[in-house]
């Protein structure tokens, strides 16, 4: 028979053994969960867009800058994955000037561990993708997440380009992302439906709702974000073969013609003869 003290020793040994197994698992997750989230800084949807200098500059007056809404979903899912595994790291990368730092700090407050700002004007998707790829190429990220597109230039090409630069697989638009060992299980939106896919890490994903709920930073997160590292790095040279000429606004919409609720036939005839759309 064993004494109580010996039994206690067995118990502790056993427990330590289980714990070290967990450590190995954790280590595995840590490798798996090294995430890069690419964020854009864009005018809030309610901001009025106008241009100055003969349509060559975006007028910053009255614009509230936010994390790109799709990128915000990507970041939220990254934070959830990190929380679920209890380990791993999230780096955010942004291409832009010092004026974007409040947006980067917000990403840190939401849950990213560190941030990188490539100090350059994000002239187009080709330039941005080249910067992200140059930073990520020797860092062994398991996941590179971003929105399906930025809501300012709406190109939707950055994820595909980053994947080509890095020789990785890209999938977009991803509405659901689960981790299953060395594989990701995803729902991708296709026109008129969706498909469930699996692919091995590393992956570049363009994200969209409902992959996660947007996260509002907590007070603790905001305080903590102030001291998290934000490294500024220079841009690499990249050419897209595109050159910007000018901006313009669409013609204003005409005022709304009201039809009485008892006169639906009149609406039908207006659509037919005046608007000529049916």
């Amino acid at each position: 028979m064993y004494s109580k003290a010996e039994k206690a020793c067995f118990f502790i040994n056993n427990w330590l053994g289980v714990r070290s197994k967990f450590r190995i698992l954790h280590h595995y997750y840590q490798r798996l969960m090294k995430i890069l989230v690419c964020i854009s800084s864009v005018p809030d949807t309610t901001s009025k867009i106008s241009f100055s200098d003969n349509g060559t500059k975006l007028d910053n007056n009255g614009i509230t800058w936010i994390i790109g809404p799709y990128d915000d979903y990507a970041l939220a899912r990254a934070v959830e994955l990190k929380e679920a595994s209890g380990n791993g790291s999230i780096t955010v990368i942004h291409v832009g000037g010092a004026e974007s730092e409040p947006v980067i700090r917000k990403a840190l407050a939401i849950g990213a561990d560190e941030a990188v700002r490539v100090d350059a004007h994000a002239s187009d998707g080709f330039f941005v993708a080249a910067q992200i790829a140059a930073y990520a190429k020797d860092k062994n990220f398991d996941l590179v997440l971003m929105g399906r597109e930025s809501i300012d230039y709406n190109s939707g090409i950055v994820h595909g380009l980053v994947a080509e630069h890095l020789g990785m697989t890209a999938i977009s638009p991803v509405m659901k992302l689960e981790v299953n060992g060395s594989e990701a299980i995803m729902d991708r939106e296709i026109e008129g439906g969706m498909e469930t896919l699996s692919a091995s890490f590393p992956l570049v994903l363009g994200c969209q709702e409902p992959i996660a709920e947007w996260k509002i930073p907590s007070m603790r997160g905001i305080m903590g974000a102030r001291t998290k590292p934000l490294n500024v790095i220079p841009a690499v040279a990249a050419s897209s073969g595109l050159s910007f000429k000018n901006y313009e606004l669409p013609p204003p919409r005409t005022t709304c013609k009201m039809v009485a609720d008892s006169q639906v036939a009149e609406l039908v005839s207006l659509l037919k003869t005046e608007a000529k759309v049916i």
């Binding site: 949807t45 809501i151 050159s243 000018n246």
Partner: peptide, 14 residues
């Protein structure tokens, strides 16, 4: 079309 339909830009492809 840019800014989700709120504006346009002209670019040159060289």
């Amino acid at each position: 079309s840019i800014f989700t339909g709120k504006a346009f830009e002209t670019v040159a492809l060289s």
